[in-house]
Amino acid sequence: MKENTPVLDPDETDALMRSITEQIDRDTFDAEDVTTLKQMVECLGDSRGLVRLRFAQTLGDIGGTATPLLVDALLHHANPVVRRAAGKTLALIIDPTTVPSLLHALLNDEDTVVKGSAVGALAKMGAASVPALLEILADPIRSESTKGHAAWALGFIGADAAPFLEDAIKSDSIDVRCATVGAIAHLVQEKGDARAAQMLLETLQDRDPNVRSEAASAIGKMAYLPALPYLITALGDIDGEVRRTAAVSLGKLGDRSAIPHLQAALNDSLEPVRVLAKLAISKIESGIGNKE
Rank of each mutant, 00 (worst) to 15 (best):
L92S: 06
H104C: 07
N108R: 14
G120F: 02
P140K: 08
L134Y: 04
V130T: 13
D139T: 12
E110G: 14
L134W: 06
S129D: 05
D111R: 08
D139L: 09
L92F: 05
S117I: 00
D111C: 10
A128T: 08
L137H: 00
E110Q: 15
L103H: 06
D95F: 05
V130L: 11
S129F: 08
K147T: 06
T112Y: 13
I93S: 07
L92W: 00
P131A: 07
L106P: 00
A121S: 15
P140Q: 10
N108K: 15
V99L: 09
K147R: 15
L107C: 13
G120I: 00
G126A: 04
E135V: 06
D111L: 09
I94F: 03
P140T: 09
H149C: 07
V113K: 09
E144C: 05
L137Y: 04
H149L: 02
P140W: 07
V119Q: 00
E135W: 06
V130N: 08
A128L: 10
T97V: 10
P100E: 11
L102Q: 04
E110L: 14
I136K: 08
P96A: 13
G126D: 01
A128F: 10
V99G: 01
I94K: 14
D139A: 12
A138Y: 05
E135F: 05
T98Y: 10
V114H: 08
V130S: 10
L107K: 15
P140Y: 08
A123N: 05
G126S: 06
L133D: 03
A150E: 06
V119H: 03
K147V: 03
S101E: 02
T97M: 03
V119P: 00
P131K: 04
D139R: 09
D139Y: 11
T112P: 13
A123K: 02
L134I: 12
L134T: 07
L92N: 06
G126K: 00
L103A: 00
V114L: 12
M125D: 08
R142Y: 01
P131H: 06
L103S: 01
N108A: 12
A118F: 06
V114S: 10
N108D: 12
I94T: 12
L137A: 03
A118V: 09
M125L: 14
T146I: 15
A127W: 03
P131N: 07
G148Q: 09
L102K: 01
L137K: 02
L134K: 06
I136W: 06
I136P: 04
S117G: 11
A123C: 09
S129T: 13
S143E: 14
I93N: 04
L107R: 15
L133Y: 05
L106Q: 01
